[in-house]
Amino acid sequence: MATPLVVSEVSKSFIMHLRDGLRLPVVANVSFSVASGECVVLGGPSGIGKSSILKMLYGNYAVDAGQILIEHKDRIIDIASADPRSVLEVRRATLGYVSQFLRTVPRVATIDVVAEPLVARGIAAEQARERAAELLEKLNLPRDLWQLPPATFSGGEQQRVNIARGFITDHRILLLDEPTASLDAANRAVVVEMIRAKKAAGVALLGIFHDEEVREAVADRILDVSQFSPRKAAA
């Protein structure tokens, strides 16, 4: 399908019960779509809700209203109302997410962390590790780190592990939250290349990039999230 991701009239607020029910609106009436092979960048000032949108799309945050329609295999799943099992299935097969921070599991070697999404899809461990090795090589992660758990890596190293893990499958939709924030110029270029390759393969990408250069290089269009800000609506 040409537009694997459609977001329709999504709204969200946080209600902070620990602060006497203080209501913090996040976004209102978010509507947009991302086509296959397209890279849409979420723009806007810090705190406007860009990360929150990605998290809602991934099912990590709940939504108050609206629909998040993902084309999964041959069905349309609404992440906003799907049961946990369906969301997990979508994450496993269709929807990938490169988060800002790497949450590590103790004792698992980097190469296995990266290979895991393939193994979860039923690929044999050896094959998955080979693929992981290719990506880590491309991202210039030193070989002698591959057998170590990434918990003690530097920010930039962890980010590259995260990226490798996110890019290793053939998920049709990828959500990228600041994937290049801690990387040097050389590695930023590698990531840009990888994003271009995904676009060419028909993957729909939605990302947040603070780095202007990267944004210029990959964005097909920029979506200003300020238009969905409830504070603006109030103004």
Partner: peptide, 18 residues
């Protein structure tokens, strides 16, 4: 109840938030 990462990252109920 719900997806573990959702409940932990976006708790809705007062007690869960606590």
């Amino acid at each position: 109840q719900g997806l573990t990462d959702r409940v932990l990252d976006d708790p809705r109920e007062p007690y869960t938030q606590l």
